[in-house]
Design a protein around this nucleic acid. Structure first.
Lengths: 340, 340
DNA sequence: TTGTAGGCGTTATCAA
DNA sequence: TTGATAACGCCTACAA
């Protein structure tokens, strides 16, 4: 690979002049700058990253860390989109993305990840709600800029969807359709986004003077189609069956719809179902799922931008960025039919 | 961050001794080695990556490149799994993964990606069937070790699922169930894996002396539930309707099942449907999808391992690794019922 | 078995 | 406006 010295020789100047010309140092003559740049281009010169970062102490690389649970070895499409859009944004700004996925068992919350210890990254994105608090704080202590996506910690920047409002507008929509017996098929409440959705659900009920009924709330361990099915079976044991269900996310909603079909319950005539996420599948389902859209791509972009900003200006107080949500009405919800 | 000099001082030896002790150079005394390592550990020393790679010319980093189409901004779960398992394997071997996603329009096939030009990676994984040939060859020309996943090029290593056999065993299974009118809901044939699946399908027909009927083949532009639905509608226009359909992948198969339900066609009684991929959803579907399992995780692992091997021993001829496939019988297929 | 010195490619400092 | 020189942290001849 061609280096700065090669260019210097050909241009008849010193290596430091070349370096300055290439970095647009103002105190270099237009003439030499031009000449140097031309030669550099002709020779397809690219600065050696290791050498540069050794002295500048900048890697122009951002780490993206995500935790992996044992059981569902699925890569969650939600984070795939975040990953994509974040890297896209970073690339525009001349940064690279170092991707790390930590198997759940292997995490040592007291030890910063290798990419930080080896000084391979200038900042780090922590994705997902199950990042242990202690681990986050270990990383913060290293002094590296950090940002959280789909998670919250008061000491660092974070980007979240407006889950409270998302669940709220979904529930309110059901109420406006005439429903009163509205259930919430929940996931693990220790995940902040799930918890917030639960809050939004309750808030809408309260505003409509509908009493919260704990029999209408099922807390599942996971957010999958399978647990959705399971939730419906539990809910259906109630004497007074719900006429509408808000699911904590789309896969659960889809599971509920499927299970309802199996049980001979008509969706949406006998049961309205609404999800949260707007995954791709939802629009293709039968019936197409009414749901709350999360702007995932925007979340990824914003995460990247905010992290860059913090790297440039480190002395800012932590902020929490809430990305709005939007109701998408499709076919899985309908007016309450007066059957009794 | 603590460096080799800090350790040297504390240990009362020279920096080079520290370096040697840490790298297990045999001509260092057990005693000093022990002492040095202990201090290093206590001080949480991690070698600075930039400095090391500047001299060793090794980055201990592998690039993972994937193309992004304009339309479906979805991150394909297939590659998410490959990505995960490859990075997992690389991590075990002390390597990092630099993730790059190229928007389809932005690709310049004549220009190696920035991560290569800046010498940030020791090798590169190219994922996906739509990587332009010219681009692959541009990269090969740089001399960097390359491996392809779900794609093939005679000049480089590649890892593929055994698509021919997968489609073959699926089709054969349908034939063994008594079906004769078997359709193939295809995706774009310029994708190697789709093409191979088509071949496997034809091979099974031929062996059973069933004539290939081009009316039973629909080539869709994409491999989604939507195109699956569309394919069924086309196929159903035939005078002699198929009694079984092999879909080019699982989402298409699921779309076919859904559409069949809408049209009042009973699956599997009136129509057997079989997919290829075994995505997570398939087992949860109603009816659960009979499909051909692709060992995605294994493909990712093997890709990483082979690339490492090639980095260590560069002078090997290119090889093509075919990972076997496996039939998973579930509920979407059944014996042909004699209705006429 | 260990230490000294030089160099990897780049940028930063100090002179000129 | 430019050049020489040092330095970043590590590794590796060569010397001791």
């Amino acid at each position: 690979m061609v280096n700065i010295k090669d260019i210097a020789e050909r241009a008849g100047v010193s290596p430091s002049t070349v370096s300055r010309a290439l970095n647009d140092d103002p105190r270099i003559s237009e003439e030499t700058r031009k000449k140097v740049k031309e030669i550099a281009k002709r020779l397809r010169y690219k600065p050696n990253h290791a050498a540069r970062s050794l002295i500048t102490r900048e890697t122009k690389t951002i780490g993206f860390l995500i935790l992996k649970k044992e059981k569902p070895l699925i890569a969650d499409p939600f984070y795939s989109v975040i990953l994509y859009s974040a890297q896209n944004e970073l690339h525009e700004m001349g940064y690279h993305l170092l991707y790390g996925i930590i198997p759940h068992g292997k995490l040592n919350p007291k030890k910063p990840p290798r990419m930080i210890q080896e000084e391979r990254v200038d900042g780090i994105i922590l994705a997902g709600p199950d990042m242990p608090k202690e681990f986050i704080e270990t990383i913060v202590k290293t002094g590296i800029p950090v940002i959280l996506v789909d998670n919250y910690n008061e000491n660092v920047d974070s980007v979240l969807a407006d889950n409270v409002r998302g669940a709220y507008i979904a529930t309110k929509y059901l109420i406006d359709l005439g429903h009163r017996n509205i259930a919430f098929a929940s996931g693990p409440l220790d995940q902040i986004s799930v918890y917030e959705r639960w809050e939004g659900y309750k808030k809408a009920l309260m505003e409509a003077n509908i009493e919260y009924n704990s029999n209408y709330m099922v807390e599942e361990k996971e957010l999958t189609m399978k647990t959705g099915r399971h939730a419906l079976q539990i809910l259906w044991k109630n004497d007074l069956k719900p006429t509408a269900i808000l699911a904590a996310n789309d896969p659960m909603a889809l599971g509920i719809i499927q299970c309802a079909k199996d049980m001979g319950i008509k969706v949406p005539d006998e049961l309205s179902v609404i999800g949260i996420d707007d995954i791709d599948l939802s629009s293709q389902f039968d019936p197409p799922l009414t749901t709350v859209r999360i702007f995932k791509e925007e979340m990824g972009n914003i995460t990247a931008k905010r992290l860059m900003d913090r790297i440039k200006n480190p002395n800012q107080p932590p902020i929490k960025i809430i990305v709005s949500t939007e109701l998408i009405v499709r076919g899985s919800t309908s007016f309450l039919l007066n059957k009794k």
